Amino acid sequence: MRLDKFLCKSTELIKEEAIQCIHAGEVLVNGEVAQNEAMQVHENNVISLNGATLKTRDFRYILLNKPAETVCSNIDEVYPSLFHYLEVEKVSELHIAGRLDADTTGLVLITDDGRWSFNITSPQKACCKVYRVGLSRALTTDKANEITEKFAKGLQLQGEETLTLPAKLEIISPKEVLLTITEGRFHQVKRMFARVGNRVVSLHREQIGAVCLDVDVGQWRYLTKEEILSFGK
C-alpha cells in the first residue's frame, strides 16, 4: 500500500493533507523519516505521525440492493451515484466489486479491500454471478434448449476473439430466466442474448458467489465474517 494511502486509512486526513505531512517530515517508517508518498508500506512496518503510531482501519465489506437509474460510480453522472444510499464515512475510499449498468438492479458488493474484490471480479477466480433476466421474446422449449446448450459451450460476442466462459441457463418462464456467469464483460448478459436473437428488457443480479440479495431496494448491510471469507482473503 502507498504511504499516503496508509495515512488516509489510519487517520482522518485526505490525500492532499497526508502528502503534506509526509513532505514535512512528520511521518516515520520503522523509525526513519519517509518523505516519498509513493513509498510502499506493509503490515509489518511501524508507521507513526508526529510520534503517534498508526494502524489502518479495518476493511469494510458492504452489500447493497441497487435501484434502477443509479450508477456504480463514486460520482454522479447522468444518473446519481448509488453511494448516496450508504451512511458511512470515507465513502471515497470504497469501490464496487463488479459494476452494474444504470438500468440494471440488484446485488452489488462494495469494499475498500482491493485484493478481496479481485477474487470476485477476476475471471480466473470463477466467481459465479446469478442474474434474473426478463426477455422481449418468449422462448419455446426447443429454443430454450438450443440457447442453454450454446451458453454452456460459450458464445462469440461481436467484436471479441475469445468465447464467453461456460454459462448456466435456467428457464423460469417463457420470458424469464436465471443466468449464471463467471465473468463480467462489457454489457455481457445483454450481448449474450442479442447474439441468440433476443433482447433483455430487465436485468437483476440476485447472487454473487454464496452471497444472496436479502435487503430491500436502496437498503444495505455489512457482510458477515462467513460471507467475507467465502470469497477468500
Rank of each mutant, 00 (worst) to 15 (best):
V211W: 01
V196E: 14
G209E: 00
H204L: 07
A210T: 14
E206I: 09
C212N: 11
R205T: 05
Q207V: 14
R205D: 02
G197W: 10
G197I: 14
V189R: 05
R195H: 14
K190R: 12
M192W: 03
H204Y: 07
A194L: 14
V189N: 07
S202Q: 08
H187T: 11
S202T: 02
E183N: 02
R191V: 12
N198T: 13
V201S: 00
V211R: 01
F186R: 05
A194T: 06
Q207I: 08
M192Y: 12
L213F: 08
G209N: 04
E206Q: 07
L213Q: 05
R191A: 03
K190M: 03
T182G: 04
M192R: 11
R191D: 05
R185I: 13
V201L: 01
L203Y: 00
R199W: 08
I208G: 00
L213P: 00
E183F: 12
V200E: 01
C212I: 09
S202M: 02
V196M: 12
V196W: 11
L213W: 01
R199Y: 12
Q188Y: 09
R205M: 13
L213K: 07
M192C: 13
G184W: 12
Q207R: 15
G197R: 10
V201E: 01
G197D: 15
F186S: 01
R191C: 10
T182R: 12
V189Q: 05
V196L: 06
L203N: 00
Q188P: 10
H204K: 09
G209T: 06
E183V: 14
K190S: 07
F193V: 10
A194N: 06
S202H: 06
H204R: 02
V200L: 07
C212P: 00
G184V: 11
R205S: 02
E206D: 12
